[in-house]
Amino acid sequence: MTYNQRAYIETCLRSILDQMVDADVRVLVGDDGSTDGTGDSIRALVAEYGPRLVHLRRERNLGPFANLLDLLLRAEGEFIARVDGDDYWLPGKLARQLAYLRRYPDCSAVYTSALTVDERGRALGVFNDLGDAKLDLATLLRRGNALNNSSVLYRACHGTGWQAGEQIDYQIHLWLARHGWLGHIGEPLAGYRVNTQGSLVLSANERVRTLYWQAIQSVPRALVRDADYARGITDFLRRVCLRAARTRDWSLLRRWAGVVYAISPYGALRTSLLLAANLVRTLGRLVLAHLGRALGRATGRRVPAVLYPH
Rank of each mutant, 00 (worst) to 15 (best):
R178K: 04
T210Y: 11
E166T: 12
H179K: 09
T210V: 09
G191A: 05
L202Q: 08
L211S: 04
V201Y: 06
L211R: 11
A177F: 08
A190D: 02
V208L: 03
T196G: 12
L223V: 06
V224I: 11
G183T: 13
A222R: 15
G186N: 00
E206P: 03
D169R: 01
Q214S: 10
Y212H: 10
L223I: 02
V201E: 03
I185Y: 03
A190Y: 00
A204P: 04
L176D: 05
A177I: 01
W175F: 06
L189W: 10
D228I: 10
Q217D: 15
L202M: 02
R209G: 11
E187L: 05
L223D: 10
G183C: 12
A230G: 10
I168D: 00
S199F: 10
V224P: 06
Y170R: 00
P220S: 11
R221F: 01
V208E: 00
Q214I: 13
A215Q: 15
R193N: 05
W213L: 11
Q163P: 05
S199C: 08
Y229G: 03
H179F: 08
Q197E: 07
P220E: 13
H184Q: 10
W213A: 12
Y192I: 05
T210D: 10
D226P: 07
S199P: 07
Q167E: 03
I216S: 07
W213M: 12
L176G: 07
G165D: 12
S203F: 11
I185D: 01
I216T: 14
A215N: 13
Q171L: 01
L202W: 06
R193V: 08
D228E: 07
Y170S: 00
H179S: 07
D169S: 10
R178T: 06
A177N: 04
D228N: 02
W175L: 14
L223M: 07
P188Q: 04
V194T: 13
V201W: 09
I216V: 15
R207W: 09
V224S: 01
D228W: 04
I168H: 00
A164Y: 13
A215P: 15
G198L: 12
L211K: 06
R209W: 10
I172P: 00
I172T: 12
I172H: 00
P220I: 11
